[in-house]
Design a protein around this nucleic acid. Sequence first.
DNA 1: TCTTTAATTGACCACTCAATCAACAAACCG
DNA 2: CGGTTTGTTGATTGAGTGGTCAATTAAAGA
Lengths: 188, 188
Amino acid sequence: MPKLGAEPIRKAALINAAIDQVGSAGTLDVTVAQIARAAGVSPALAHHYFGSKDQIFLAAMRHIMSNFGESVLLGLPGTSGRRRLAVIVSASFGAPNFRHEVVSAWLNFYALSLVNDEAARLLKVYHRRLRSNLIVALRPVSDRPEAVAETLGALIDGVYLRAALSHAPTNGFAAVRMVNDYLDEVLT
Amino acid sequence: MPKLGAEPIRKAALINAAIDQVGSAGTLDVTVAQIARAAGVSPALAHHYFGSKDQIFLAAMRHIMSNFGESVLLGLPGTSGRRRLAVIVSASFGAPNFRHEVVSAWLNFYALSLVNDEAARLLKVYHRRLRSNLIVALRPVSDRPEAVAETLGALIDGVYLRAALSHAPTNGFAAVRMVNDYLDEVLT
DNA sequence: TCTTTAATTGACCACTCAATCAACAAACCG
DNA sequence: CGGTTTGTTGATTGAGTGGTCAATTAAAGA
C-alpha cells in the first residue's frame, strides 16, 4: 500500500516552507532545494506536486490570501456600520496575516506580479475583492465610498510596505491605530 | 590616451539604461549584457566602471533619488504653509519621478533592500529625509505633525506601489489629487 | 499504482582577464 | 621651430571560467 493521502500534507508543508523561506530570506531567489529541505522532502517532489518553482510560490500566496479572506468572513457577521471597517482593518493587520515573513512575501509577490501574468491576475482578483468589500462597508458611513476605498486601499498597502521594510518586528496595533485614525478623520 | 572624459558619459548612459531596462522589464533579473547593450557599451565596461551589477542598480536609484531631491529644492523657496506640502507632493508625482519605469524600479528597489544592506541604508536615508521634510512642512498647519507625516508617507508609498502594479500609464494628477484630498481632510 | 528520491543535465550569467585601440604629450630631429 | 616619432595610459572588448539552479529522468520503496 502506498502512503495514501500524502499529497495534501506534502503540499501544505511545502507551502508553509515556501512562505517561511521566501519571507525570511526576503527574496524569491531561494532555491527549490532550500524550500524542499525545509519541508522535509526532496526537490524533485516539489516539482512533482507543483510543476514549477513559480507555482509553489503562487500556491503560497493563494494560501495567504485565503487566510485573510477567512479572517474577514469570520469577523463580519453581526457587525455593521463603522464596525465592519474595523473588522477588515483588523484582519489586515492581525497576527496571522501581519507576520514579518508574510509581509515580506507580499512585497516579493508585488514585484513578481510585474513579470508573471498569473501573479498579476491573482493580485488583481485580490485587489478587486478588497476594494469591493471596502466600498460596501464604507457606503453607510461615507458620502464618497469609492474615493475613500481607493485611498484606504493605498494606505493599507503603504503600511504593509513599510512594515516589510522595517527591521523591527511588525506592530499590528500601531498599524491599526494609524488606519483607524485616518478613517475617523475622513468619515462624516 | 583615448577620448578623455568618457567615464561620466558612459556612467550616465549605463544608469539611464539600467533604469530603463529594469523598469520596463519589471525585474532586477535583467542581465548586465542587456543593460550594457542598451547603453551602447560592452558588459565588461559596465563592470569596469561600476564593479558589480548591484552597484549599477544602486547608482541608478541614487540618481532617481537625487532627481527627486532637486525637484523639491527647486519648488520650495518662497513658499510656506500648506503650499510647501503641495510642492513635496507634486514632486513625488511629477512627470520625471513618476514615470512607469521609475516607479517600477522603485518597487524592485524596495524588494532588494530586504536583501542588500547598501540598498537598505540608502532607502533609510531617503525615508528619513522625506519624513523630516514632511514634518517641517506640517508643523505650521497640523497639531500632530509626526503622526500625519507617518500616515502621509505610507500613503505616498502605497500610491507608488499601486502605480507600479497598474498596467495603465501612471496618472500623476489623480495621485496628487488623492493625496491632497487626504491632507485637506486631516489638516485643522 | 502512487510516492519518493538520487543523480544528472542543460542553460544561463556574473564576473575576470589579457589584449587592443586611440589620443595626447614629451622627446627628438632636420 | 614645424614635423615626426614614440611612450604612456585611459577606454574598450572578446573570449572565457566557474558556479548555480531549475527541471528531468529513471528507478526504488510502500
